[in-house]
Amino acid sequence: MEQLILKNITAGYPGKSNIISGINAGPFKPGVITALVGPNAAGKSTLLRSMAGLLKAQGEMQWNQKNILHLSLREKAALISYMPQYLPQDIELNAIESLISALKASSFDQISVRLPEARKKAFDVLEQMDLVELAMEPLNQLSGGQRQMISLAQAIIREPAILLLDEPTSALDLQHQVAVMQLVKEYAAKGKIVMMVLHDINLATRWSDELLVLHKGKIAAHGKPNEILNASLLASVYNVNAIVETLQSGQIQVHVESLIK
């Protein structure tokens, strides 16, 4: 079965070579959503960017017994799609154009599509995400949340086997947070691997199958929310006093009480 395993991944930036170090995690299985959580600057974006090939990294990223960490961007793009945390401003393209160019820009054989097909697919994705009204809106005139939704559309339109989302819900209202999580759930159900950075721990426990807790560039815990989440983990990672409650539904709920002095 297709699965993804991270072995000893180390990555950083010039002058700070070990922002994340010795990351061993997995296997990540198709159909499973993993929420990547952890405090600011823990290295969540760094990990996703190294997996996507945007940042040089050492180690191994095994996919079907092959190390895909050092594949070329083109080869990676056929397999992985990454939604960046930060979205550029001031783009005079409308939403539908950005989606079409997402498909047309890549010359990789498996993805390369003809223009009418790309156009149809772009409208399909907008329809699926209930965003058709935004199709003709210029990106620089969208609200932050709308722009984030379009950015998510740009990531999933390529239907990658591995979807990496960096804080896709940070600018979204409650309704759209749920809409995004539902969409991601449907996407994973098609047999795709999803890893997403989430800051809202309750959103993460409610919607994801597994949590990967990152702290200071290392993995602090990895597993099902009800198996790994407890007060001492939250205290050591986030430096907060918190109560972890299991609801009748089996759902985990975290209440943050105060900072640890």
């Binding site: 960017r49 996507a52 090939g53 945007l54 070329s72 961007l73 083109r74 080869e75 990676k76 793009a77 056929a78 992985i80 799609s81 990454y82 939604m83 960046p84 930060y86 979205l87 550029p88 783009i91 393209l93 154009e97 950005s98 160019s101 997402a102 047309k104 820009a105 890549s106 010359s107 990789f108 993805i111 950015s151 740009q154 990531a155 390529r158």
Partner: peptide
């Protein structure tokens, strides 16, 4: 032209599309 258009969406984004 297509690649340049995609580059407007951001460098990480374009690289994520497989563009060098």
């Amino acid at each position: 032209a297509w690649k340049m258009t995609a580059l407007r969406l951001g460098e990480d984004r374009a690289a994520g599309f497989g563009i060098n």
